Computed example of a mutant assay.
Amino acid sequence: MNIDADFTDAEREVRATVREFVDRSIRPNIARWYDDAVFPVELVPEMAALGLLGMHLHGHGCAGRSAVEYGLAMQELEAGDSGIRTFVSVQGSLAMSAISKHGSEEQKQRWLPRMAAGEVIGCFGLTEPDAGSDPSSMTTTARQDGDEWVLDGAKRWIGLASIAQIAVIWAMTADGVRGFLVPTDTPGFRVTPIAPKLSMRASIQCDIDFDGIRLPHDAVLPGAVGLGGPFSCLNEARYGIAWGAVGAARDSFDQALGYAQQRTPFGRPLASFQLTQLKLVNWALEIQKAQLLALRLGRLKDAGRLEHHMISVAKLNNTRVAIEIAREARAVLGGNGITLDYSPLRHANNLESVRTYEGTDEVHTLILGEKITGHAAFRG
């Protein structure tokens, strides 16, 4: 479809730069990191130097790149591994985005430049043990006590929490849901990495417990009251996922195609068999459609015309397509496909998490169902 012709020179340059980084620093090591369940913190300075941290944010040391440029970067990172892309998403689209969108000028100046430089790592605490898809039922609370805030509660599946220096924590207050900036060395802030995991093994997710932790009065993000605050950040992350899933699908396709060209069952290349070609053609069609959908989303975002339900279209479609391609690509690889010598099964395992976080398939289906019918089906 020659989609490359629809990208600008600057967009292709971003893609090439991040792809080179992935080929050089991620691909040779990802099998070991995944097998050992290790997030490579040594990559953070290089990702910061490439301008990947908060790259779509403007000012305060952030790169200020376009939505399409950001999307292409996420696509290339996830072609390497979903866990690496997730780091950039949590840091930039969630933690930094919350401060950029809803923080005071003092909070922005204090945190964003150092986060963009990779000197400070952030996390984003919304999901709870009993409140994933329904954050309105959160039980984490914040109450005022004189000039201080007192937080109590728990969060779960919080990316980067064990290596973060600052946490954006969402809690229920007398005025509704508010966001708080919580230094992770605050007394009473307890983090426990979640292990073992079958997915996102080269990434970090944690449980967090709060036991009467005390924060100064200016720890609150002044620009966010209600669930619109965290949802605006989730939409940024969902947007990046729509692009990232294309990268995982494309890498799975490339691995299966290369293998099928070299494998010679019954004295001929596996790629010459009709059933193999059927699979490859179907995958190519779906990847092209997913790429066009992501590009449409990015152009709308850059033009200021993106509506939140449109993000659900791309997040739902592209993750669903990617996980099916990754699974079927593993089958083309046969028994060799269950080893970490090849990427599709690793991508498929990671995509089980990607299709769940930032809104499950069911949640995005119901968002679109409400858009189509006018009836909200979230509650019976």
Rank of each mutant, 00 (worst) to 15 (best):
N2D: 14
I3M: 05
T8S: 15
E11G: 06
V14F: 01
T17H: 04
F21M: 00
D23W: 00
R24G: 00
S25V: 02
R27S: 05
P28G: 09
I30V: 15
A31N: 02
A31M: 04
R32F: 03
W33H: 12
W33E: 00
A37P: 00
V38A: 07
V41G: 02
L43Y: 09
A48H: 06
G54A: 05
G59M: 08
H60Y: 15
H60A: 08
G61P: 07
Y70F: 14
E76C: 11
E78D: 11
G83F: 07
V88Y: 00
Q91H: 03
S93G: 02
M96W: 05
S100K: 04
S104C: 07
Q109D: 13
W111I: 03
M115C: 03
G118P: 10
I121P: 02
C123N: 13
L126E: 10
L126M: 14
L126R: 07
S137R: 12
S137D: 11
M138I: 15
D145P: 00
D147W: 00
W149N: 12
A164Q: 11
V168F: 02
R178K: 15
F180R: 02
F180P: 05
D185L: 06
T192L: 11
I194P: 01
A195D: 12
K197P: 00
K197D: 01
S199W: 11
S203F: 09
I208Y: 12
D209V: 14
D209E: 15
F210D: 09
F210N: 09
I213T: 06
D218F: 03
D218H: 12
L221F: 06
G229T: 09
G229N: 05
F231M: 12
I241L: 10
I241Y: 04
W243M: 06
W243H: 12
V246I: 14
G247P: 01
S252K: 04
S252A: 15
A256M: 10
L257G: 05
Y259E: 08
Q262T: 13
R263W: 14
G267E: 12
L270F: 09
F273K: 03
L275E: 15
Q277S: 09
V281S: 11
V281R: 14
N282R: 14
W283R: 00
A284I: 00
L285S: 06
K289E: 15
L297T: 14
G298A: 04
E307C: 02
H308W: 04
M310F: 08
S312R: 05
A314G: 13
L316G: 00
A322R: 01
E324N: 07
A331E: 15
G334K: 11
G334L: 10
S343I: 15
H347M: 03
H347Y: 08
V354S: 01
Y357L: 11
T360K: 01
E362N: 03
H364Y: 04
L368V: 10
K371I: 08
